[in-house]
Design a protein around this nucleic acid. Structure first.
Lengths: 178, 178
DNA sequence: CATAGCATGTAAACAGTTACATGATTAT
DNA sequence: ATAATCATGTAACTGTTTACATGCTATG
């Protein structure tokens, strides 16, 4: 079975929101899909170039003085490719939870390090839950009538529930280990 | 900052349980750390060879007739390397939830495909929750007095809670989309 | 005039998957 | 006999991160 490159669809998807530059896309990623998807800079620009070559996006250069921005726009073919991918069932995820891996061998770890790891995780999950809560609030007040609202909401809701249940797990874990 | 190869520590960690062959390790992975960690075959054998070269593990060949098995044993240096890694805080995970990515652009998807994806996810999460439940039961009856018990339990407990909250999310999502 | 942010990209190295290749042993 | 499982590995490809490289523009 051929492997499917998902970075390309993340990029194509973002370009359906509006035409933008590579730099814009970095920021857009952080504002939108960051809870459940991430691409590194090193992937982004080469992917945009590749998609241009494949005619799934087009470029227009916009210059402001000496500086030029390359604005990418998705083509009809690009949108079709995205829609085709959207219909394909997701691969079963192959999980990589470093914390669990460390904890599984926790009896070999130096004293206190397990608890330290869990407290760090707790801190991150609290931040994630707070952020999701904020995003949901923002979505409800600004985008409630948008046809995309339900879909956007569901992704953030998933992030929120995950963070919350991880916080619950942290409490249990700290109780058990102390 | 240098990147840390985690596959090597998964391998070293499994070898602390008991000496085993590459083939054994594949099975051991499925029985133990599969809920939160996975390595492909293509990683495993080269990694064992590499670790041998670095003297973090040793090999002894065991022959049964014409067939030979290579049994790997962790060395003192290997155990030290593992313990050192166990003390290092985990990297913040960079999430890759394909389902969320698809759903985020769900308004562009063909009719019914979003719901199909969620139902598949629901099915997988139910299977995962059931498996975790079974593993917990097994742990409690067979390993309750093992000093590793608490750590093993916590990893499975995390998997169970995650699966459960995802099932809750599936219910909400299906309700919203129907 | 220094600093932060805007803007685009490349190169090297490493990680990871898939498919291929080979052959022995055990159970049906 | 034949199928499943034991057993070890390689090669090719693709994905991904990190660090590097360059230079402009706005703000204090």
């Amino acid at each position: 079975m051929a492997r499917i490159n998902k970075a390309r669809y993340a990029v194509l998807g973002l370009l359906t929101l509006e035409p933008m530059s590579g730099y814009d896309m970095q920021k857009a990623m952080h504002k939108t899909i960051n809870h459940f998807w991430s691409e590194s800079d090193g992937q982004l620009y080469p992917m945009l170039a590749k998609l241009t070559q494949e005619k799934l996006v087009t470029v227009t250069e916009e210059s402001q003085g000496a500086r030029t921005r390359k604005i990418y726009t998705i083509t009809k073919a690009g949108k079709k490719a995205l829609q085709k991918w959207l219909a394909i069932p997701a691969d079963p995820p192959s999980p990589r939870f470093e914390l669990s891996l460390k904890l599984f061998f926790g009896h070999l770890a130096p004293k206190g390090s397990n608890i330290k790891h869990i407290k760090l995780h707790q801190h991150r999950m609290q931040a994630s839950a707070d952020l999701c809560k904020q995003v949901i609030k923002h979505l409800k007040s600004e985008h409630a009538s948008d046809p995309k609202f339900t879909y956007w909401y569901l992704t953030v809701r998933s992030g929120y529930l995950n963070a919350k249940v991880q916080l619950k797990w942290c409490d249990e874990a700290l109780e058990l280990l102390k």
